[in-house]
Simulated scan of single mutants.
Amino acid sequence: MSSSAHSAAASPGVPRLAQHFASIEVQNHAARLGMWLFLSTEILLFAGLFVCYGCYRYLFPEAFAAASRHLDLTMGTVNTVVLITSSLTAALAVHYAKEGKNGVVALMFALTIGMACIFLVIKGFEYSHKFAEGALPGPYYRMEAVQLPGVPLYFTIYFLATGLHAFHVVVGMSVLVWLMFKAMREKNFGPNNYVAVELGSMYWHLVDLVWIFLFPLLYLI
């Protein structure tokens, strides 16, 4: 295959083939494999927090149970429904990208981004409430309602886990915004060129999956 064929710009429905790949199929396989490896490192990052939570909950079961009752279950439940729904729209974006319906792809990503904004706004209200009542991490804890050893540690894990998750939400939103504008302006997604949409959706599913673990650990158990 000639160098010009490798470096040719992508036209609608035709992906760009990088020079170091033999075919589009090999390039797509490498992209998917790279994303799975990246997602595995992200899972390991959150796994460390889950292990810390499990260890300290074993040491301070009463404190963790009492502290979890001071989280807003309604807001947490609404955020869970919002994120699960956003995962559906992200999956639909991949489906419509395979059919070449770029306008619908952009719409699905716009809905996903909108629900991500709702999630962050609700989380912001939760944080402001925690700051107001003094449910802060570590030495900054000053809530008088619960005075048990281990409660400040619970809120340390709460802010670390949910804050790191919120950061990933923002990163995911940035990726989806780029894909949304790409679908709107270039209109080059199609049955032979949808891997970028697929990878962006995979990252967003990771964001949802992490929250599905955080919600019961922090709010329900």
Results as ranks from 00 to 15, higher is better:
1 M>D: 07
5 A>T: 08
5 A>S: 12
6 H>Y: 12
7 S>C: 13
9 A>E: 11
11 S>V: 08
12 P>W: 03
12 P>I: 09
12 P>H: 04
13 G>L: 12
13 G>M: 15
16 R>I: 03
16 R>C: 06
21 F>W: 08
25 E>W: 04
29 H>N: 12
31 A>K: 12
31 A>C: 10
32 R>F: 07
32 R>A: 05
35 M>C: 04
36 W>T: 05
38 F>R: 07
44 L>M: 09
45 L>C: 02
47 A>V: 01
49 L>T: 09
50 F>A: 14
52 C>I: 02
55 C>T: 07
59 L>I: 04
60 F>T: 00
61 P>D: 00
65 A>L: 10
67 A>M: 05
72 D>K: 09
74 T>S: 11
74 T>F: 15
75 M>R: 11
75 M>W: 07
78 V>K: 04
80 T>E: 12
81 V>S: 03
81 V>D: 01
84 I>K: 04
84 I>P: 05
86 S>T: 12
86 S>D: 08
87 S>T: 15
89 T>V: 13
89 T>W: 15
90 A>M: 01
96 Y>C: 05
97 A>H: 06
98 K>R: 14
100 G>M: 06
100 G>T: 04
102 N>A: 05
107 L>Y: 13
108 M>I: 06
109 F>P: 04
112 T>Y: 12
113 I>Y: 01
116 A>V: 08
117 C>Q: 09
119 F>V: 08
121 V>G: 10
122 I>Q: 11
124 G>S: 06
124 G>K: 07
125 F>S: 07
127 Y>T: 12
132 A>I: 11
136 L>R: 15
136 L>C: 09
137 P>H: 10
141 Y>E: 03
143 M>P: 02
148 L>K: 05
153 L>E: 00
154 Y>N: 00
155 F>T: 02
156 T>H: 01
158 Y>F: 15
161 A>N: 04
162 T>D: 10
163 G>R: 11
164 L>G: 05
168 H>I: 08
168 H>Q: 08
170 V>H: 03
171 V>R: 10
176 L>P: 02
177 V>R: 08
178 W>R: 13
181 F>T: 13
182 K>P: 00
184 M>C: 01
186 E>M: 09
186 E>I: 09
187 K>D: 07
187 K>F: 12
188 N>C: 12
190 G>T: 07
191 P>R: 06
194 Y>M: 01
197 V>Q: 03
200 G>D: 04
204 W>K: 03
207 V>S: 04
207 V>I: 14
209 L>I: 09
213 F>G: 11
214 L>N: 06
215 F>N: 11
217 L>G: 02
217 L>K: 01
219 Y>I: 10
221 I>S: 10
